[in-house]
Simulated assay, not measured.
Amino acid sequence: MVIERVAWPNLDEALKDAIAAQCGPVQHVTPVGPGFNSQLAIVVHAERGSRVFIKGLRTDHARARTQRIEATINPYVHAVAPRLLWTLSAAGWDLLGFECVTGRLADYAPGSPDLPIVLECLRLLQAIPAPGLPLKRAEHRWRNYVDDPADLDHFAGNHLLHTDFNPDNILIADRAYFVDWAWPTRGAGWIDPALWALWLIAAGHTPDQAENYAAHTPSWARAPACAITTFVRANHRLWSEIAADHPDAWTVDVVDAAKRWDRYRSAKYGEVQPECPSGPALSANWPAGTGATHGA
């Protein structure tokens, strides 16, 4: 699933000239390590010390549309993400130029000082409503992984969701920044905390510990536990499919975390029941999300 990077020396001169027209004369270029979404990922150092992070795909790449998606959503996420400075289509490439944030990738390990920093950024994101754009909908993205289509109603909502909390997508600097907005989604607010919790489990947290972090978001505190359990099972099925198609070490780790979390929820709450309440109502048999007393 890792996309092979193209190095700066191997780019067409026409593309280099187009980049210089955006950034100013290029002094030197720093490559960014391997990733999952970009064929080009570099930091351009220009005159007077200015720096721009540039990511891009060839226009004929299957994922080229994600460049346009990320450019479209960026004005709405300045509170949690680096600002987009410019877009460029030249020499068969689609590029995005962002303000360059000097930071490091987030550490999700138990006890990491990054965890409260990421949580604070997640709480900021939770306050952003989904803009009036043709976003993917959570109830559509997970539609193939539930037993009862009626369960998808619990995934619907009007929150803006990032949905990809791989630590490679979280920069830690003066604060946390959420990057790689390739899959922005409209849905229930508690879905992002749930997706972050899965990565915490993959990083060594127990399901209970991961849920306690998620519980510090108000959306999780309001969510029916049965809705969370349904989503955890659906996400387990999704990651089982991903790992079967791409059996990399990291996908195997995530599907193992998803399996452990699914078993934990089933043992704690039992199998998902058809009387799981719809909307904001809570069933006496299905309390709000675990650790809800920690929510704001």
Rank of each mutant, 00 (worst) to 15 (best):
C226G: 13
I242K: 07
T230R: 15
P167I: 04
D164I: 03
I201Q: 06
N169A: 10
I191V: 14
A188W: 00
P167R: 10
D164R: 08
P184H: 01
Y213H: 15
R237S: 09
G204D: 04
P207I: 02
V232G: 01
H205A: 08
W181A: 06
I242R: 09
Y213W: 14
I172S: 02
N166V: 08
P167M: 12
D153G: 12
T217D: 11
T229Y: 05
H216V: 11
A210R: 02
L160R: 00
F178I: 13
G189Q: 02
N169F: 00
D164C: 11
I228C: 12
A215H: 05
A223E: 02
V179M: 05
R237Y: 09
G187E: 00
F155A: 07
H162C: 06
Y177S: 05
H159D: 14
A176E: 02
P184M: 07
D208A: 14
R233E: 14
H236L: 12
I201T: 09
L161K: 00
Y177E: 04
N169V: 03
L152T: 03
L238F: 15
L238S: 13
D192E: 10
A173P: 09
I172F: 08
E211F: 09
A214Y: 04
A223G: 10
I172M: 15
S219W: 04
Q209I: 06
I170S: 04
D174N: 14
H216Q: 13
N169K: 09
N166L: 11
A202F: 05
A202R: 07
H216G: 12
G189V: 06
A202M: 04
T217Q: 09
H159R: 15
P224L: 07
P218H: 12
A227F: 04
W220G: 04
W239T: 08
H236Q: 13
A223P: 00
W181D: 04
N212M: 12
P167Y: 10
S240I: 08
N166Q: 12
W183Y: 14
I191T: 01
T206P: 02
V179R: 03
I172K: 05
F165G: 00
A227G: 09
V179E: 01
W239G: 05
H162A: 11
A202H: 07
R237W: 10
E241I: 05
A234S: 15
R175G: 02
P193Y: 00
D208S: 14
D168R: 12
P167W: 01
R175L: 07
A182P: 06
F165S: 04
A156S: 15
S240T: 14
A202Y: 00
D192T: 12
D153K: 13
G187I: 02
A176H: 00
T163A: 10
R175P: 04
I242Y: 07
Q209V: 12
A223W: 02
R175I: 08
N212V: 10
L238K: 14
N235L: 12
H159K: 14
R237P: 07
P167K: 06
C226Q: 07
W190C: 05
R186D: 01
A223F: 06
A194D: 02
